[in-house]
């Protein structure tokens, strides 16, 4: 009988790396989503064009290719990245592009009367956005953001291919050392699933929390 406890430790280490990647990737994705999403709604043509180019490029090419590009090609033009940095960069930029469309859609879904009310109250563009539009739009974005975060979690498995020791990588290590395939892969499938459930649960409770005080308002 193999010593599974030691191998379990290895897999849990991998789980930590996966969680770390997911968190950092999500933060980058969130930042990019707001930058690009608001960029697409900007008054200035240059900003709109830049944001559209970013979104179309990162949604149009595969996350896998982007990751390989970040890890193998960027060093050749003088940008040396560790596997973790490359992973966070590729994941964050990729998912950020998808989430940017969510931001745009949510902001556009806020009714005209809200914008008109902002003008009537003599709020500046930034004030109106900050105090009236975004708080409502954020609630619309949240559920889709949750889905995006789960997509990001699942995409982290790809970083195992650039030698970052995440869950999938550790499962391969365990498989190579024990010759048993079933146990490590079944274990990590369950871990991924539990993490995904945690994310959707977290987003749902955040949604309830944010919706407080917005009763009677649309949504």
């Amino acid at each position: 009988m193999t010593q599974w406890s030691g191998y379990l430790g290895l897999i849990l280490q991998g789980a930590l790396v996966t969680i770390e990647l997911t968190l950092m990737g999500s933060v980058l994705a969130l930042i990019m989503a707001f930058l690009a999403g608001m960029g697409r709604l900007s008054r200035f043509f240059v900003l709109r064009a830049l944001a559209t180019a970013y979104i179309e490029f990162f949604r149009g090419t595969s996350i896998f290719v982007q990751l390989f590009f970040a890890y193998f090609v960027l060093p050749l033009i003088g940008l040396e990245l560790t596997p973790l940095q490359a992973g966070v960069l590729a994941l964050g930029l990729n998912v950020g592009a998808y989430a940017a469309e969510v931001v745009r859609g949510a902001v556009q879904s806020i009714g005209r009367e809200q914008h008109e009310a902002c003008i009537a109250l003599n709020l500046g563009r930034w004030q109106g956005l900050r105090h009236v539009i975004l708080p409502q739009a954020f609630l619309v974005m949240l559920p889709t953001f949750g889905n995006n975060a789960i997509e990001l979690l699942k995409a982290t498995s790809v970083v195992s291919l650039i030698s970052l020791a995440d869950l999938t990588f550790q499962a391969q290590v365990v498989r190579a050392q024990t010759g048993n395939t079933m146990v490590p892969f079944a274990t990590i499938l369950v871990i991924y699933f539990v993490l995904a459930l945690l994310i959707s649960w977290g987003v749902r409770s955040l949604e309830r929390r944010m919706a407080r005080g917005l009763d009677g308002v649309r949504v």
Partner: peptide, 8 residues
């Protein structure tokens, strides 16, 4: 749906 395609 909750687990990565790569692992599958």
């Amino acid at each position: 749906r909750g687990t990565p395609l790569l692992v599958q």
